[in-house]
Each structure stands twice: as C-alpha cells, then as structure tokens.
Nucleic acid binder design. Structure first.
Lengths: 192, 192
DNA sequence: AGCAGATAATTTACCGGTAAAACGACGCGC
DNA sequence: GCGCGTCGTTTTACCGGTAAATTATCTGCT
C-alpha cells in the first residue's frame, strides 16, 4: 500500500537549514509531515491529516509486518484472504461471493483461484441448477494450511500491538469501529 | 490495498443455516468477520484482529475515498505523494530522498519522475559535485497543481471524518500516534 | 417458443510496482 | 593514480491487479 501522507525522514541526516523542526522524541513520522505542511501552508487545518495519515501509515507497517509469516507458507496476503474467507464462513462460496468477502474484483479472484487450485488448496464444482456459477471449497490441505498459519499470524499481531496496553487497545478498537461504521455506511450509500 | 481480515457480507443475503450471527445494527464488517472466526476457532484470541482488521479496512476505504479528488486532477495517489513531498519540504530532493519520503522503491520513483517530468510538473538537474545524483524540484505548474488540490483533499478528509466529534478524533489520533511510534521504532529496528 | 436483458465467470490488454541486475560515478587505500 | 568496494540511479523482466470486453447461461416478457 502507499502512504498517502506519511514519509519517514529517518532523522539522522540532519540538513540544518530547512524548515525542519527539531523532531523531539516520542513523536512519529506523521507528526513531522504535518509540521512541514503547516510551515508551508500556515492556514491549513491539519487535523484530519493526523488521523488519516496515521491510519494509512499504520496499515502499511502492519501489513508489511504480517506478510512475513505468510511468505513463509508461500502465500500472498490476497491468497490468504481468500482461503481465510472460505475457512471462516465454513462453507462453499462462489467466486462472486469470494470477491465480495475479500473486497477484490472478480478477475482477481479468478486468477487466484486458478493458482490455489493448481496448488491443491481449493476445489471447485459447478452448480447443478445454474451452470454459470461455481462453488469453491477448501481441500483438506487448504484447511490445514489456514489453520497452520492462523495461530502464528495472531501471535504476530499480538506482539505487534504490544505497545498498547489492554484498555488502550480496546479504546482504539472502539473508535475505529465507530469510524468504520460511518465509512461503510457513507461509502456504501455512495456505491448503491 | 487489500484488506487482511476484513470482508463485508452485506447482511441482506440471509442464508439462515450457516453459523452467521444476526449482525445487529451499529456494528461493522470487521465485527462480523471476527464472529465468524470465533465460531470456527473458539479458542482464538481475536483481540488483535479487532484492531488490525479495522485499521486495514479503514485505510482501504479512506484511500478509495481520497482517490476521487485526485483522479479529477489526473494524478494517482503515488504521484501526488511525490509532488507533496517536494511541496512540503520546500526544497529540491534527490530520487533516493523522494523514495524514502514516499516509502517507495527507487525504481518506482524513477518511473513516476519520468511521467511527471513529461507532464511538466517536475524538473531535474544534475548535481555539480557528484554526477550520480539528481535534484528534483517542482515546476511552477507542479506547485500550483499541489496547492490547487490540497484544499479539496483536506475538505474531503474532514467530511469523511465527520462521524467522529473533535475529542474522539483527538483521542484516535493520539492512540494511533503511540501505536505508530512503537511500530516505527520496532520495525525500524528490525530493518536496521 | 423465442428474444431481450441481466448475471456469473473468465479473458484480454494494459498499467504500475517490485526485485535484481546493470550502469556510471565516487572515494578510499595503497 | 589505479583498482575495488560502494553508492545513486536506471533498466529489465516479471508479477498481480484492474477495467472492459467476452462467453455462457439464466430469467422474464410477450
């Protein structure tokens, strides 16, 4: 993923001239970017950037972190998403359903299914009533793969969130839930 | 971006048999997914999923939303990131610096610079001392483009966050800042 | 029955990103 | 001052995603 408004500036290059504020400890890269914008455009309301920039940056870092355990198992995130959808729903899904579940296009699902099928992780059968639709299910190997990865994945996630204590995590989850509720409603409405 | 653990299940398909809980109002898609996982793997600690899944999903939706105003101006998010980095630092940057600022690979920066150069938004000059390095700066047109887009972008962001009141936004920003600080420290350490 | 339009899945063409190699240029040690 | 390791940038080959066109099938209408 790309980071909309998040850059690093590792901090130890130190060009002393530019309008770069000292960047004292305990502050993240997004804060530094926001400072830069404010210096250039003093009238700007940078409030939203502090939230959105951080969400994007966190997502980028988290995804990067989570890719490590997956690549060990020879899966991409997208492939794991697909297998995970099948695993957690517990039943067969059609390609279109998989596309909705994984928020991706039908074409992408088709490609991934082909690969996963060749690797023996999923199987497909045609619908008897409607010959347009296919039903996809996990093979035993596919199920075992997901179940094998999942604990490691969750352990990784726990470790990566360890910087927050339990109440903080809860608060964060709650705030994100309300935001997400709004976004899904709002954008879902736009889409419909 | 792909959504690691976030799927929708629009809710109104209603296969009554599956272990799909009723999904009462006021709850987001991530909550539904977490419920599915818990039903299949009752022993699982789904705490981290509630945070990470929502961050990923929010990021995906926010980025999708923010792309709209950019495409009006004929820019991709990555291109805008690049121009933005030049604009907010206020001075020339080398391709490697741009890569760091935008969290992307040097190769990607090279490609984007070529395109943006052809469109007259950036200019390059070679370093006089070290003929390996190039210095990239915004043209007047490039600066105007960024300054023209930015207000609309921020307005969009404000609108999109309007579901949260000011104190909530502040709290969210603060929590994300601590998390981000941890992540950047931790992963930066792993990288080094 | 038979056709018009919708729908599920796939195919095609292309675009942007990355990893790895290539290229040119620097600078240090001897 | 000559070579060797390194660095900044670009090039190459390829991979995965999407949008739009395509194929096959179903549904409803008359």
């Amino acid at each position: 993923m790309t980071a909309t408004e998040g850059p690093p500036a590792t901090g130890d290059e130190g060009p002393p001239d530019t309008g770069a504020a000292p960047r004292d400890r305990r502050d993240d890269t997004v804060a530094a970017v926001v400072r830069q914008w404010r210096a250039v455009h003093p009238g700007l309301d940078t409030g939203p950037m502090e939230v959105i920039g951080r969400i994007n940056r966190c997502a980028a870092l988290l995804q990067q972190a989570e890719d490590a355990p997956l690549r060990r198992a020879g899966l991409s995130r997208a492939e794991f998403d697909l297998l995970g959808a099948l695993r957690r729903t517990g039943h067969e899904l059609t390609p279109s359903e998989l596309a909705r579940e994984t928020f991706s296009s039908g074409a992408a699902v088709t490609k991934r299914l082909k690969q996963l099928g060749e690797r023996g992780l999923v199987e497909r059968r045609g619908d008897t009533r409607d010959r347009r639709v296919a039903h996809v299910r996990l093979t035993d190997a596919g199920r075992d793969t997901v179940d094998g990865i999942l604990p490691a994945q969750l352990a990784y996630e726990t470790a990566v969130l360890s910087g927050l204590d339990a109440p903080e995590r809860g608060e964060l989850a709650a705030l994100l839930a309300t935001l997400l509720g709004q976004l899904e409603g709002r954008l879902g409405a736009l889409r419909a």
